[in-house]
C-alpha cells in the first residue's frame, strides 16, 4: 500500500516520489496538481476562491492567486524547478442549479478561470483539465509518475 497524504479544503501540500497526494470532495473548489517530472516532486492545492481580498490573507492556500505561487515556492524548496512544472486540474463544478445565477454562484467557473490565467502567465503548461459540470470529484496525484486520477460517484474515474 502506497503512502497517501490528504490535503484538506483550502490547504496545499508538496511530496516526493513515491508518495500520493489526495484531496477529496471537490465541488466548486478546484484541485490543482503541479508536477516536476525530472525531480519527481508533486504539489497539490485544494483551492476555494479565485482571488484574495486585500492584504489581510489569513490562509493563502484558500485563493488561486496566493495558493499557486506558494505551492511553486514550496516545490522549489524541495528541489523542483518552475520551468519544468506541468499542471493538471479538476473540480470547479456548479453543484446547485439555483434560479438566479449571480456571480457567487459561478464560483467554480471563476476558480477555474483564475487558475488557468495564473498558469498561463507563469508559462506552466496545462496537460489535463477535468472541470465544470455539476458533480463532485476526488483527485489523486501520483508523484512517482505524475498520473492524475479523478474519481466521481456516478461518472466513474479517469486517469490523466
Amino acid at each position: 500500500m502506497r503512502k497517501k497524504r490528504r490535503v484538506g479544503m483550502a490547504d496545499l501540500a508538496v511530496a516526493g516520489s513515491p508518495e500520493i497526494l489526495v484531496t477529496i470532495g471537490l465541488g466548486s473548489c478546484v484541485g490543482v496538481a503541479l508536477y516536476d517530472n525530472r525531480a519527481r516532486i508533486g504539489g497539490l492545492a485544494h483551492i476555494m476562491l479565485p482571488k484574495a481580498n486585500g492584504p489581510l490573507v489569513s490562509n493563502p492556500a484558500k485563493f488561486a492567486d496566493t495558493a499557486l505561487p506558494l505551492l511553486v515556492k514550496k516545490m522549489e524548496q524541495r528541489g523542483a524547478l518552475q520551468r519544468r512544472l506541468t499542471a493538471k486540474l479538476a473540480g470547479g463544478a456548479q453543484m446547485f442549479k439555483l434560479e438566479r445565477a449571480t456571480d457567487t454562484m459561478r464560483i467554480g467557473e471563476r476558480n477555474t478561470e483564475a487558475i488557468i490565467e495564473w498558469l498561463t502567465e507563469e508559462n506552466i503548461p496545462v496537460l489535463a483539465q477535468d472541470t465544470g459540470g455539476s458533480w463532485g470529484r476526488t483527485v489523486e496525484l501520483d508523484t512517482e509518475t505524475g498520473e492524475f486520477l479523478v474519481r466521481t460517484i456516478a461518472r466513474g474515474e479517469k486517469r490523466y
Binding site: 477529496i24 470532495g25 473548489c29 476555494m48 446547485f96 464560483i107 467554480g108 458533480w135 463532485g136
Partner: peptide
C-alpha cells in the same frame, strides 16, 4: 438539490 460527495455539496456554501 445536489446528490454527491458531502465535501462537494458543502463547498459552495463555505466559499
Amino acid at each position: 438539490i445536489a446528490v454527491d460527495m458531502a465535501g462537494a455539496v458543502l463547498d459552495y456554501v463555505l466559499a
